[in-house]
Design a protein around this nucleic acid. Sequence first.
DNA 1: GATTAGGAGAGCA
DNA 2: TGCTCTCCTAATC
Length: 330
Amino acid sequence: MSAVLTMGSPDRGEVASSLHPPRVGFAETPLTSLERDGWEAEDTKPPRDLAGAPERGLPGLYLSCFDMLVTEDAAWLLKVSDTAPPSPGPRPEQCPVIDSQGLGLSLGLDGQMEERSLEQVQSMVVGEVLKDIETACKLLNITPDPIDWNVGNVQKWMLWTEHLYRLPQVGKAFQDLNGKDLCAMSEEDFRQRNMQCGDVLYAHLDIWKSAAWMKERCSPGDSKFTGGEEPWSEADSFCSGQPIHLWQFLRELLLKPHSYGRCIRWLNKEKGIFKIEDSAHVARLWGIRKNRPAMNYDKLSRSIRQYYKKGIIRKPDVSQRLVYQFVHPV
DNA sequence: GATTAGGAGAGCA
DNA sequence: TGCTCTCCTAATC
């Protein structure tokens, strides 16, 4: 196989189907054009025009098609997988490229080797998907399994998805539904509720449902799909059901540099110094997380400043705009 | 104009 | 009571 998986590549749909096994516990719903086009997303955002006429007939997983789920770090991971020769490679900020040829997946390998490499890649990708869903769960304070969502959780997820994919407001069309209702709906039902983005939401939800299915399927500690990590096992303030604190939220964003590095990043992780690169974006994320649509950086920064007195966050010795420091670094 | 700093009051669990 | 949101003024970049 000589799959070349490139963000922006016209062949990505083909690769999606070849990269992923026919069944790894994911729904066998055909890919939509959106899912394939998701690879084309620039700046880790999906294209705005997501609701084009869907092309059908590509069975497989959705997981590779959404930037949030296979985030840049997933692609980065693929790029630097152990099958790849050591190379500087693109920085995570760059448009990631999954190129099995470039990775050496097929060069000089017999079929078995290639298959094993692909399995490794698949495992890593699935693992990253699960981790990213987990991260989203933490940020939104919702459970990974959509069927457990209440009406509020559904709205949070909708808001999040709208924001992530720059969708027009779609939540209103689903505001009366809980997770069980949502999971019972067909793609057609989604389209009826929202002609423009119904199929997008349906596909996105399907990933979550599939991931929940996988989580159930994988015994605790099973690292088959996680590349050695257990994304569901982290126990912290996000999973405990307790209200999240802003500093915890910021730290969580900082822990996903390849997903959120554009809006917040470490300047000096050892010292706990970080910079908010996109204040409006971080504020928006925080607003979504806290169900505060009116949140802005002014308010967020005021909350950060409250931490000065508590000794949680302070300004670094050399004060810079949008730069803060955790008093007790990780 | 955007950011920083901090006071003050309100709402919530 | 603690935490956060919100609004405000003033200073600074």
